[in-house]
């Protein structure tokens, strides 16, 4: 129990230092863009693949349930897929995928830098290491994760279209009638709030575990596992809290 508070205290201290004033803004910008490119480009294929299939599967399942009920028209599926993707599936599934991919990446990169004394080398030069090594990663994630989620929503909707039209549940026109019907921009607000929070959680938790590694290769492995596990757990809890508060 004491350990949890200690960890939390260390995490808060790291975050506080990560957002202290940068000594040379242009270096931080460059680093942020570099990180953003690496997180974004690196994660796009897997997010694209998974969200397309999730959209397709949702459409098929809703069609299966709707057809047995026979109460609602099939074009509603477009609307249901859209709502499910925006409110829940795109942000949460993207976040869990990113926790696995980006989280372990960040933790092992920082962990390796810690063990091989690269962080000490920055420190000796006079660099504010949390600000330079952690800050840009978090900023990049907060910037990139919402964009990935938006892409996931679009691809999910397209996946649903492909599956439904392929399975002759509805026509293209019917589906997109559903997709545009009853659209609420508030849903998008909820999605953005979730995405920003998830981006922050994944990057900051992983940075914490990477930055504080002590030991050697084994500990780097352990810390990157911890980064993935804890950021995933926090993501699902925060997801629930946000849904509870905002819906």
């Amino acid at each position: 129990m004491v350990r949890i508070f200690e960890t939390f205290g260390e995490y808060i201290t790291l975050m506080y230092r990560a957002f202290s004033k940068p000594e040379k803004a242009v270096m931080y910008w460059n680093e942020t863009f570099r990180q953003a490119a690496s997180i974004g480009v690196g994660s796009l294929p897997i997010i694209a693949l998974v969200s397309t299939f999730i959209g397709a599967v949702s459409a098929v399942q809703f069609a299966y349930q709707f057809s047995s009920l026979n109460l609602v028209p099939m074009w509603w599926i477009g609307s249901v897929v859209r709502k499910a993707m925006i409110l829940e599936l795109a942000p949460t599934i993207s976040a869990l995928l990113l926790a696995g991919k980006v989280g372990s990446n960040i933790a092992s990169e920082l962990g390796t830098m810690r063990i091989s004394e690269q962080i000490d080398a920055y420190e000796i030069m006079g660099v504010n290491t949390p600000a330079y090594l952690v800050g840009p990663k978090i900023a990049a994630a907060i910037f990139v994760v919402p964009m990935l989620v938006i892409i996931a929503v679009f691809l999910g909707i397209i996946g649903g279209w492909g599956a439904g039209v392929g399975g002759h549940f509805y026509t293209t026109a019917e589906y997109f009638k559903g997709v545009t019907d009853g659209f609420k921009s508030y849903d998008v607000v909820v999605m953005m709030v979730k995405s920003l929070l998830f981006g922050f959680i994944i990057s900051s938790v992983s940075c914490y575990y990477g930055f504080t590694v002590e030991g050697g290769a084994v500990e780097i492995g352990e810390s990157s596992t911890r980064a993935v596990v804890y950021s995933s757990i926090i993501v699902v809890i925060v997801n629930f809290v946000v849904a509870f508060l905002l819906l």
């Binding site: 040379k24 270096m27 091989s116 004394e117 690269q118 000490d120 080398a121 000796i124 006079g126």
Partner: peptide, 30 residues
């Protein structure tokens, strides 16, 4: 610290940066 140079036991070169970028880093930053 800006007046200090240090060679580490395991060299601690930044392995994601080229030799040139390694040496140039303090110049870029400070």
């Amino acid at each position: 610290r800006k007046e200090i140079g240090m060679l580490f036991q395991g060299t601690a070169l930044f392995d994601s940066l080229s030799v040139e970028a390694n040496i140039k880093f303090p110049l870029d930053m400070f």
